[in-house]
Amino acid sequence: MSHYTGSVPDTKRAEDWRDFAACAGAYDEMFPSSNPHEIENAKNYCRPCPVSSQCLQWALSTNQEFGVWGGLSEAQRHHRRGGPSKTISTDEYAGTTTSRVPVVARSLPQVWEDCIEEDGEHLLWVGPRSVSHIAGSLTPNRLSFYLDRGRWPEGDTKRTCEMPRCVKPSHLADRVERGEEADLAVAV
């Protein structure tokens, strides 16, 4: 006969697609108001995410009413639910070519670590020209910028050093950091 000890059983969930999501830790951003800018900001997390298809499928199969899941807003998912439930991919929903080769889900930091090489004070990108995921592709500069600053760059991300292929975060700047946002406002 076993005796109750009063201890709480281990309730940690098994690792799954959620552990590889680009939006991990950005809970509030993924449940925006109806403001189109906030919805687009939430979708920006989904574009380079390696698990967006799994996220979208889960949201559709569990009838998630709120938030952005797999790159789709509440209204887009509501529209999609009109037909019978079936497994879909992001390509299938968007009507794009399904020519992308499926990849094993890896976190964005894992992809970055696998594709950089130290060279003195620089970090060189030795991986492909873009990081392809189920949700699309991401340039090495954008990936490095995002992982360092925790936000997606505004506009293009340029190197501030002369070393080709350098993706060291401190050697990158987006439009805001380069001060081009103020220049654009003056030009208008």
Rank of each mutant, 00 (worst) to 15 (best):
E181S: 10
N44C: 06
H78M: 10
R151L: 01
R151K: 15
S107I: 07
T160D: 00
I116M: 03
N63H: 13
R178C: 02
V111K: 09
P48Q: 03
L108G: 00
S85A: 10
R80T: 12
F31V: 13
E181L: 11
A21M: 11
L60D: 08
S85K: 15
D91S: 13
V103K: 14
M30I: 08
G70C: 06
N141W: 01
I88H: 05
C49Q: 00
L56C: 08
H133A: 12
R178D: 02
R151S: 04
D114H: 07
T5N: 08
T157V: 15
E113H: 09
Y4C: 06
V8T: 14
P128R: 14
V8C: 03
T157K: 04
V186Q: 10
A135Q: 03
F31Q: 12
G95Y: 08
T157Y: 01
S89W: 05
E154I: 14
R159K: 12
A105C: 02
R165K: 13
Q57F: 01
N44I: 02
E181I: 08
S107W: 06
A135N: 05
S170L: 08
S73V: 07
P164S: 11
H122A: 07
G82K: 15
F31M: 08
V103S: 07
P140D: 11
G127V: 09
M30A: 05
A135L: 03
W17M: 05
A173F: 05
K12R: 15
S52V: 11
